[in-house]
Design a protein around this nucleic acid. Structure first.
Length: 475
RNA sequence: GUCCCCAUCGUCUAGUUGGUUAGGACACCAGCCUUUCAAGCUGGCGACACGGGUUCGAGUCCCGUUGGGGAUACCA
């Protein structure tokens, strides 16, 4: 059997988006699983919308996800000679013809047809005119059979296709001589030896046309596998305007690429009851027979869960290296690695879904100045806490060494000395005083990480806030 | 309008020769744990869109209805 070749063929008209990323992943996985070749091709035949920046963004997104390609990137625009040659041969064999209908006329005739109950297909006006190269400004259309099945066996959807009578003679070359998508894909897929075309289900309906082009070119079509669309909150196909679909955006939010890959691979594909898949797992297990047929809604809840799952698993050095840029952005400066920071990051693993969340939660350690959350202050830095915090501050001055065990003993002695108050009564105000918020890792870990000097200062600030409350209440 | 596709818990899904108390995960709720929040553990809620067939038996097969989506470009 011929070795498998798949391709990912994005159009560089924006960032790599979720749907494209999944298509890329499936193509990559299928090729890897079968020991085949994965080709990257940039479909930039739409000059007005294609940009080099966008192409770079797509490539960067692929690399970030860990999807390596074996050949390419090949730019479709650099293959226009091949597309032209294909059109010439179709013209010569009579499988294509020149068309001089203007855009305006086409539009008018289509609307008229629709209004009178027709289906709006091209009416074939130029089909039998046998226009030569000197006919002036013209496009080239494929000459489709008027009837008969244009069928194909889809690896996901099963027997598919339409009757030729339902498809109009499509334009394959613009009047400026450049090729159109449907022609270019077919020519390129043929010449690149693509054996399996795996793409979004939005292409399912125009596959019969492509099958016809394959036939006109005298080539057997490859296998097609259309994967169900990913839809947004609205239930409609993901759109850049409506949904958060940019892979780069997920990256900037501090999402882990492992989580993102795991999230999208389960949108439309399954492997029994399994939920967690690394790229290696995917390469090992992925196949087309368990790709579903119905559209999947992209809900971020599971992505969040996966993010936390992978954060919990990251090796300490890797975690530090990956969270470092986010820490730096929170701190406003480069971050020094330290055992204390490492301990905090470990404690933050089970409280973070993304690297950005983790960095945010480390704010009280990596910045000297902390911000006090209004709600936390309201709830915990009340007048009753003043004696507790004051006593604690005094006690903390002499804690030695400054470690979790000694801190715990200090807390216990202060709690007892203050009339046996519950630990929560002491710990919560302390937490708010030293971190500015009501949520943090264990209080001893927290204090140990912050260090004595900053703790004493912040305790003073906290006492001050409580005293201000008391004064306000009395006046 | 025309063509095509889809239909299991809120969401992602298991279900692959018709026979299951319809399973898992996320989310949600409750309890436990606890100095907060998490994490963890335990339990709970929760689905075969509807109507006809075929069959001893239908989530699984067929038809219809409804609902949703996609395609109908000198975009890809």
């Amino acid at each position: 059997m011929k070795s498998i070749r798949t391709r990912f063929a994005p159009s560089p008209t924006g960032f790599l988006h979720l749907g494209s990323a999944r298509t890329a992943l499936f193509n990559w996985a299928f090729a890897r699983h079968h020991g085949g070749t994965f080709v990257l091709r940039i479909e930039d035949t739409d000059h007005d919308r294609s940009t080099r920046e966008s192409e770079a963004a797509v490539l960067e997104g692929m690399r970030w996800l860990g999807l390596d390609w074996d050949e390419g990137p090949i730019r479709q625009s650099e293959r226009s000679g091949r597309h032209r040659a294909a059109v010439v041969s179709l013209l010569e064999s009579g499988r294509a013809y020149r068309c001089i209908c203007s855009k305006d006329s086409l539009e008018a005739r289509k609307n008229e047809d629709l209004a009178s109950g027709g289906n709006g297909l091209y009416d074939g006006r130029c089909r039998d005119l046998a226009l030569g190269p000197d006919c002036g400004n013209h496009t080239v259309r494929i000459r489709l059979p008027r009837e008969g099945a244009l069928g194909f066996d889809d690896l996901v959807f099963g027997p598919s296709g339409q009757d030729a009578s339902q498809i109009g003679d499509a334009i394959i070359q613009r009047s400026d001589g450049t090729p159109l998508y449907n022609l270019a894909v077919v020519v390129d897929d043929i010449e690149m030896g693509i054996t399996h075309v795996i793409r979004g289900a939005d292409h399912h309906p125009n596959t019969p046309l492509q099958v016809a082009i394959y036939r006109a070119l005298g080539v057997d079509p490859p296998f097609f596998a259309h994967v169900p669309l990913i839809v947004g909150e609205s239930g409609k196909k993901l759109s850049k305007r409506r949904d958060n679909v940019s892979i780069q955006e997920f990256q900037q939010e501090g999402q882990l690429h492992e989580a993102l890959v795991n999230w999208i691979v389960r949108l439309g594909w399954s492997h029994g009851d399994d939920e967690v898949f690394s790229l290696d797992d995917i390469a090992r297990l992925f196949d087309l027979d368990h790709v579903g047929r119905s559209a999947a809604r992209a809900e971020p809840a599971k992505l969040q869960w996966l993010g936390q799952h992978y954060i919990k698993e990251l090796e300490s050095d890797v975690l530090f290296r990956r969270v470092e840029p986010f820490l730096a952005s929170v701190a406003g400066q480069a971050i020094q690695d330290s055992p204390g920071l490492r301990r905090l990051l470990d404690a933050l693993r089970e409280r973070s879904h993304t690297l950005m969340e983790m960095a945010e939660q480390a704010r009280w350690l990596i910045r000297d100045e902390i911000e006090y959350e209004e709600k936390a202050v309201q709830k915990h830095l009340r007048p009753v806490a003043i004696p507790l915090l004051t006593a604690l501050r005094t006690r903390l001055e002499t804690v030695d060494p400054w470690d979790e065990a000694q801190l715990e003993r200090a807390f216990e002695s202060v709690a007892e000395q203050e009339g046996g108050v519950k630990m929560g009564k002491l710990a919560q105000p302390t937490r708010v005083a030293v971190t500015g918020r009501a949520v943090s890792p264990g209080i001893y870990e927290t204090l140990a990480a912050i260090g004595r000097d900053r703790c004493l200062t912040r305790l003073g600030t906290g006492i001050g806030l409580a005293e201000a409350r008391a004064a306000a209440q009395n006046s």
